[in-house]
Design a binder for these strands. Sequence first.
DNA 1: CCGTGTGAACAAATTCACAGCC
DNA 2: GGCTGTGAATTTGTTCACACGG
Lengths: 208, 208
Amino acid sequence: MNLVPNLVVDRLPVYLRALNVLEAEGKKTVRSEELGPRAGVNPELVRKDLSYFGRFGKQGRGYEVVALQAELRRLLGTDRQWSMVLVGAGHLGRAILAYPGFVSEGFVIIAAFDTDTSLIGELISGMRVRPAGELVSFVQSRRVDIGIIAVPPAAARRTAEVLHEAGIRAILNYAPVMLRLPPGLLVRNVDPVIALESMTFWRSHEVA
Amino acid sequence: MNLVPNLVVDRLPVYLRALNVLEAEGKKTVRSEELGPRAGVNPELVRKDLSYFGRFGKQGRGYEVVALQAELRRLLGTDRQWSMVLVGAGHLGRAILAYPGFVSEGFVIIAAFDTDTSLIGELISGMRVRPAGELVSFVQSRRVDIGIIAVPPAAARRTAEVLHEAGIRAILNYAPVMLRLPPGLLVRNVDPVIALESMTFWRSHEVA
DNA sequence: CCGTGTGAACAAATTCACAGCC
DNA sequence: GGCTGTGAATTTGTTCACACGG
């Protein structure tokens, strides 16, 4: 499965999102001609991408919405739960704890940590904030799949190192810094400013 | 400037991030050999990418950190301010209003809107929440470059339409839905679940 | 002599176009 | 007849390798 291109994998969640909408709309089947545009790609790319993993469609009919949904969830691993720990319980951390979109897709935050002693013990969205010093022992005593970094930029690298040393191999990084990745560690950045800048570039270079 | 590949443009903000770190570290110059890894790409790609826009380096020396920073900011348009309106003042909206990373890069939120009457008039991070009904007239009476969508998924498409009709041509979408884009409208999605799923895919297919 | 800038070689991704199945 | 699945053609992106400037 290492022969599947990265870019293909990155589109699978997008297809799943589109299927969730189709399911909510009560559609039973969908053609690549419709699924493509809903995911922002063209139809033949949908077919090509899916063909890396199997033959999920039926000629003359298209794809069964619910079946393809289940198939993608299985491929993405979201047919099971993934447990996460949050580091940083400031504004961003609070919003992350309150975000309803994680649990519905199988991502569960099981603990939150912060260095700020004034926050420790506080309940945020029903979650007690623990002292950062307990992070390593917590991770080592439980199955934790993913670490979420929501600390200030200056603390991000150190936090990533601590998480990695504690045995975590996947990090969702909200801090606006690029983390240099040790081999075997997966990192995804959530960085709205980078997203904004890729729009302002085009707006700044318009011919009009 | 339309001949510049999209992928190249997407990497410019990443280079800028790396340069910001280098500047904070007090480095005066940087070679592509160092800048590449810090941005998660290899050195020759840095040189090739930058060469689309000019010759910023000096042979035998590398790039001047501050000068390249300024050059990239100019290219990305972040040498000026971009004004944004926020739609949705729930948990997510609050975190967005409190996020310090926007202003430092020239992105300023000038108004916040919500449909929830119990929120209207409330002060969040010093910003008064306005009724959603005032959104269109506000946008039409001011220069607003970017709309930020932080509403529940079901309301996202309608919000995008309203922003677009009011004349906004760039949207930062935090709602977990893919917006079908009218031509001329730029959209970037900030979706942590999609980021997570592209990691769980690989973790689910490991040979080990 | 070191490191950029860049054409040329290569690799990867997307689109085309159609055979085959429902 | 309609739509998938897929090799082949094409386009796009990356890496190589080296000439050239500081």
